[in-house]
């Protein structure tokens, strides 16, 4: 076989080469086709729906290029839009504060338990997202233990609640997307060469300075990836607001869901979806540019 290859002429070699050049495209084709048909085309449909107006009968719409749909959408749902980004920001911040020491402990202080602890961080993922949220609803709820203890200790009055509050929604968001923060943080911390920290110590930096000047900068890729992976789903989520919140904590996801599935106002819902998506993309790009990470995927 190999000797046969040696004797092949340049003509055939070229054929082999061009066949090889096409190979990556053949490998990519099925996946790309899938993503184009079921991701890009729908986004295009969403864009085209967003400027339509009501036709004859409920649920029928005609294209009128009414860009005022966007202004209507923003003015009618401004509060929920701002609230979504506020909650997502807070949840991301809390997740970062909770995750960093956790990832640090697993990466540097866990010894031979490292792999087991890593599995335990991912493990909550395996118990349904909704079940966990319902569990929180019940743990913090009126029949739960937490509220009774807090009331007994007079930290909360008889009229105070834990569920159906903004606090509960942010706590739920923080909890549900925590592994998305911890895993990238762990991955970037784990990659740090311990000798870097030792060198910093040898150069008379104390533990805090070493952490601030060596560990944190070197873990930045993990911080960027983790905050993005937490912020994006949190901003679009509506389950936590639905199960743990009250009508005053509705997020943009709740509005979009209701407009789609209950009110059947497709153009308005499409306009809001696009506003959400574009805002997130702009924020992500600005953030990534500032943080200076190039490789996203």
């Amino acid at each position: 076989m190999s000797t046969a290859l040696l004797h092949t002429g340049t003509h055939e070699k070229k054929a082999v080469l061009s066949k090889k050049k096409l190979l990556p495209y053949w490998l990519l084709a099925p996946g790309i086709i899938w993503l184009v048909i079921f991701f890009l085309v729908p986004i295009y449909q969403l864009i085209s729906t967003s400027t339509q107006t009501q036709g004859y009968g409920i649920g029928t719409y005609v294209q009128t290029y009414r860009f005022a749909n966007f202004i209507d959408a923003i003015t009618s749902s401004k509060a929920q839009l701002i609230r979504s980004f506020e909650y997502a920001f807070l949840a991301t911040l809390f997740a970062l504060i909770i995750s960093y020491p956790l990832a640090y402990a697993v990466a540097f202080k866990s010894g031979r338990w490292k792999n087991t602890l890593l599995v335990l961080i991912v493990a909550p993922f395996f118990c349904s997202f909704l079940l966990r949220t319902v569990a929180w609803e019940q743990i913090l709820g009126e029949q739960g233990l937490v509220i009774k203890v807090l009331r007994f200790a007079h930290i909360l009055g008889a009229q105070d609640h834990l569920t159906a509050t903004p606090f509960a929604v942010v706590a739920g968001l923080t909890y549900n997307f925590l592994p998305f923060m911890t895993l990238p943080l762990y991955a970037s911390l784990e990659r740090i060469d311990i000798r870097m920290m030792e060198a910093s110590g040898d150069l008379y930096a104390n533990a805090l300075t070493t952490f601030r000047k060596v560990t944190v900068p070197l873990s930045m890729p993990g911080v960027v990836a983790g905050t993005l992976l937490t912020f994006i789903p949190a901003a679009g989520d509506y389950i936590n607001a639905e199960l743990l919140g009250n009508p005053g904590t509705k997020m943009i996801g709740n509005v979009i869901e209701a407009r789609y599935l209950e009110i059947v106002d497709y153009p308005g819902a499409a306009a809001l979806s696009l506003i959400l998506m574009v805002t997130i993309l702009i924020l992500v790009m600005a953030y990534v540019k500032r943080a200076g990470t190039e490789e996203l995927v």
Partner: peptide, 12 residues
Amino acid sequence: PMATPEIVMGAS
């Protein structure tokens, strides 16, 4: 798709 909120993908 990873940077798009689920609700946008579902709705579209």
